[in-house]
Design a protein around this nucleic acid. Structure first.
Lengths: 137, 137
DNA sequence: TTATTAATCTACTAAATCTATAGGGTTTAG
DNA sequence: CTAAACCCTATAGATTTAGTAGATTAATAA
């Protein structure tokens, strides 16, 4: 299951991508338009800012804005920051690899074999999809 | 993340698929070979039996065995029984569809658009992979 | 028939994670 | 100064996951 965090994060990013120019948009504006709990969204935007997707402006007239063009934001990086590893099991993860404690041999492991395929196909989709593709802009 | 339930379930199925003939295999045997908590595995095998993948025999010489040939067991059905929906969000699920409460229009929803692609590619892999493919038998 | 073996079933619990909220702190524009 | 708006930490409630306990039922062998 996709977490609400990721779901809301993607929605917020596309909302920002659809704005004219790079004028800061307030959390409350996004929260209202996309029906997302304000404080929860706040924490999500914070992590997006800390990971280089968003810039922010404090004080009156402040808000959040995209730091890059939508077509330069790959969904791989968005997913990794919000959702974590793209792989369904750590033993097939490229960026977060971990050996399974219970599994003696990855080469004969059925789960490993299957999940590598799933990882590769998901990865291809996330790589070839940018924020621009999702918001048609 | 793939649940341990699904991971263990797939391992158990491949273990059974690798056996000669359809001789019942005891839970303890699988539990030991695959390093899975016996009682947890017990509950997993029970759901696999209730969903038509396994047969069981009680008493001495009893155990679990596959009801179909490995090549006739698609991973789609295994995943749906153990892990649940293949889609990452209910609004793109074929078998477990649910409308998102917060989302006014699926057609303009970025998450929807992205997750349909992911669903389709995962589905294709699970459809084209059988238990036989995973255990090379 | 009796003992043994092994699956069946129900209920429960501990831990982890997710979702959301609370509440103060800090910065900026006017 | 003051109101607007982001910054940050902590925490609570709900849900899910992973595993445990223990009694029951069925099959087999002696």
């Amino acid at each position: 299951m996709l977490s609400k965090k990721t779901k809301y994060g993607i929605k917020a990013l596309t909302f920002l991508a659809r704005q004219e120019g790079n004028i800061p948009v307030q959390i409350a504006t996004i929260s209202n338009s996309e029906n997302i709990s304000l404080k929860f969204l706040e924490s999500i935007l914070l992590t997006l800012r800390k990971n280089g997707f968003l810039g922010s402006k404090k004080g009156k007239g402040g808000g959040y804005y995209l730091l890059k063009k939508p077509k330069d934001i790959q969904m791989t990086s968005v997913m990794r920051v919000l959702e974590g590893p793209i792989a369904m099991v750590p033993c097939v993860s490229l960026n977060f690899y971990e050996k399974c404690a219970d599994c003696p041999d990855e080469n004969t492991c059925a789960v490993h074999k299957l999940m590598i395929q799933v990882r590769d196909s998901s990865l291809e989709i996330f790589r070839n999809t940018t924020l621009a593709d999702l918001c048609d802009c």
